[in-house]
């Protein structure tokens, strides 16, 4: 609780984020910036990612009653939208949208948390510290994607009847009642990989570590990696799709499919979606 510490952090907070060069290997602000590219054209909506997330991140199964009341804790959910001008039948299929925490650079949730339980890490993640959280739920109010999930019930006492608790991942906490939680890009995996890499005096290699959803996805629709490293696949994809992390309005060719959701609100998300393609002549 030193004043210097506060002031240092404060000045970092007060900067406009993301600033140019923040995630640049040459500038050395940060060695990592985790980002995703999600191809909606090959996402089949199969929910493998959701289940993998339940397995990896100790998500409670809430049951029918509570699901009905909106207490589902799926950190990643598959949304299904029909086209707005649909005729008698949805003749061009439907649209699936996997939605998880977008790890915004200028995250609306971070500024409003009274205790700083959610804040930005150096590698561009929007961290959520369960033990600091007092449950004011302001972050959820301010999240435009509504991907923050509050523990309205004491799930540890109900969601894992013995011996189901043996399945729990010891690398992360089981959240008790009264705290907010959300997708972390499987930070426990990232931390492990980063620590291993540092021990070997190198950076984390591309593809060395991926979140559970990316690892499970049967169609490889999600690409994950360190966007600071220009040779990583995800950085190449962002560049190829002409999506710039630092811009709130992209100037790109109409044939390119990259976009970020609700960019106009300027949260600068770390997840690039790639547009669904439909053969209009079919």
């Amino acid at each position: 609780m030193s004043i210097t510490n506060l002031l240092n952090n404060w000045s970092f907070y007060r900067q406009k984020r993301p600033f140019r060069g923040q995630y640049d290997l040459n500038k050395q602000y940060s060695e990592y910036k985790w980002a995703m590219a999600l191809d909606l054209d090959i996402c089949t909506g199969c929910n493998a990612c959701t289940t993998a997330c339940y397995a990896e991140n100790n998500l409670p199964v809430v049951g029918k009653e509570r699901y009905q009341h909106g207490y589902a804790m799926h950190w990643i959910r598959i949304e299904r939208y029909w086209d707005e001008n649909m005729g008698e039948f949805p003749e061009s299929g439907t649209s699936f949208l996997p939605m998880m925490c977008q790890q915004c650079e200028e995250a609306p949730c971070e500024t409003v948390c009274p205790v700083g339980a959610t804040n930005h890490t150096n590698d561009g993640l929007n961290s959520q510290n369960y033990h600091r959280c007092i449950g004011s739920r302001y972050c959820s109010v301010n999240c435009p994607y509504k991907v923050r999930y509050f523990n309205f019930w004491n799930y540890p006492s109900t969601a894992w009847p013995s011996p189901l608790q043996d399945q729990l991942n010891p690398d992360l906490t089981v959240r008790t009642k009264g705290v907010m939680e959300k997708c972390t890009f499987c930070v426990q995996r990232l931390n492990e990989a980063k620590s291993r890499a540092r021990t070997e005096y190198r950076l984390v290699k591309d593809g060395e570590v991926v979140p559970a959803c990316v690892q499970a996805c049967p169609t490889n629709a999600i690409t994950f990696g360190n966007i600071v490293d220009p040779k990583s696949k995800v950085a190449k994809m962002w560049k190829n799709q002409q999506v710039d992390l630092y811009k709130d309005e992209q100037e790109k060719d109409s044939s390119m499919r990259g976009y970020r959701i609700l960019e106009d609100l300027r949260p600068f998300p770390s997840v690039m979606y790639m547009e669904r393609v439909r053969d209009m002549e079919a």
């Binding site: 009341h69 909106g70 739920r137 959820s140 509504k146 309205f152 019930w153 004491n154 009642k177 009264g178």
Partner: peptide, 15 residues
């Protein structure tokens, strides 16, 4: 004792 769920708040509707 039970958690805020008994207030019938839910996830997007947290306040």
């Amino acid at each position: 004792q039970t958690g805020l769920g008994v207030a019938n708040l839910d996830n997007p509707h947290v306040w």
